Computed example of a mutant assay.
Amino acid sequence: MFNHGLVCTDFTDGLDKMIHFVSALGEGGFKEITFLHSVAIWNEGEIPRIDRDKVEEAKKKLSPALNNVPENMKVNIEVLSGNPSDNILATIKKYNIDLVITGSPVSTSLEQIFFGSTTAKLRNKLRIPMMILRPQLMSVYRNDEFALRCRNLNSFWLVPYNHAPHHRYILEKIRGYVEIDKGNTLKECLFLSVIDEVSRSEILTENKVKEAENKLAEIQKSFVSSPINVQTLVKRGNILEETFKIAFAHDVSAIALADNLKEDSIFNRLVQLAVGNNANYLLNCSWFPLIYFPMNKQ
């Protein structure tokens, strides 16, 4: 499904541990893995320059990834100076990356507005999926747990779905991946619709539930002959609360999200903070791995 992965690490996010689990990543479907670390430009003195000592130090830290590489895999190490977001975009182009794996601390939208983050910036520049893993979670895995996680990064997706354009976009992406992957990596998908009980009319709520069930039934039917197991579920309540409950109950490997945000501006972020954005909230607060699909940007 994903052949060329890019693991971006700052050595505090727990993702650098993946250098010891290249074979497990290969079992999870990857044929090529690139490890990237960005070193800040050295600003001491009159002329900014590359901090070559830190570059060499980072290369040495990542070098174990080159040991015992399976015959059917390739591993690359990139240590670049400058802006992390720019370095990631350049590396994506260089190695034809189809999935970026990055870490992101649990934070609030307000913190991102004022302080920003590499992940938040990437979210609005990428044209390929990005998997976001929590440092606090990755850092405490024991080796056997970490290997299992690497093998199952993309085995079971929970897909919040209400037939909005960005949800239909994910659906079409999944269809494309299944056609190529044949169920070797992505083995299960659970499409979840949550009906918000804000209406005082029980009849209106019931109609919405029936409509959601019918749409999900059509989706499930379309995957009958596919090699993956597609489940559907309609719940009542708060979409964020129900999404987390279902993720726990069904032992998913990641929550799949998309949105139609077209530009990275403080105005748009403030609008999201003011009116609420479910994808944005999940990106900031979920302890589950998230796979984010940026809609094609013009």
Rank of each mutant, 00 (worst) to 15 (best):
I174A: 06
I174V: 15
I174G: 05
I174N: 08
I174Q: 05
R175S: 01
R175T: 00
R175K: 15
R175Y: 06
R175H: 04
G176P: 02
G176K: 13
G176S: 15
G176T: 13
G176I: 03
Y177F: 14
Y177K: 03
V178D: 05
V178E: 08
V178H: 01
E179W: 04
E179Q: 15
E179L: 13
I180Y: 11
I180L: 10
I180R: 11
K182R: 13
K182E: 15
G183L: 05
G183S: 08
N184C: 06
N184F: 07
N184D: 12
T185V: 15
T185D: 07
T185M: 08
T185G: 02
L186Q: 04
L186E: 03
L186T: 05
L186K: 00
L186G: 04
K187C: 09
E188F: 05
E188S: 14
E188Y: 06
C189D: 05
C189A: 13
L190P: 09
L190M: 11
L190E: 07
F191P: 03
F191M: 02
F191T: 07
L192A: 10
L192P: 08
L192I: 11
L192R: 11
L192D: 10
L192W: 07
S193D: 09
S193Q: 06
V194I: 12
V194C: 12
V194G: 06
I195S: 04
I195C: 08
I195H: 03
I195A: 03
D196H: 08
D196G: 03
E197Q: 11
E197F: 10
E197C: 14
V198T: 13
V198F: 10
V198I: 10
V198G: 11
V198N: 14
S199L: 09
S199Y: 07
R200L: 11
R200Y: 12
R200T: 12
R200G: 06
E202N: 13
E202C: 04
E202H: 12
I203D: 11
I203T: 14
L204E: 14
T205Q: 12
T205I: 15
T205P: 09
E206C: 01
E206V: 03
E206A: 10
E206D: 12
E206R: 12
N207G: 08
N207S: 04
N207W: 00
N207M: 06
N207Y: 02
N207C: 00
K208W: 04
K208I: 00
K208P: 00
K208E: 10
V209Q: 03
V209D: 01
K210R: 15
K210C: 01
K210F: 07
K210Y: 07
K210I: 09
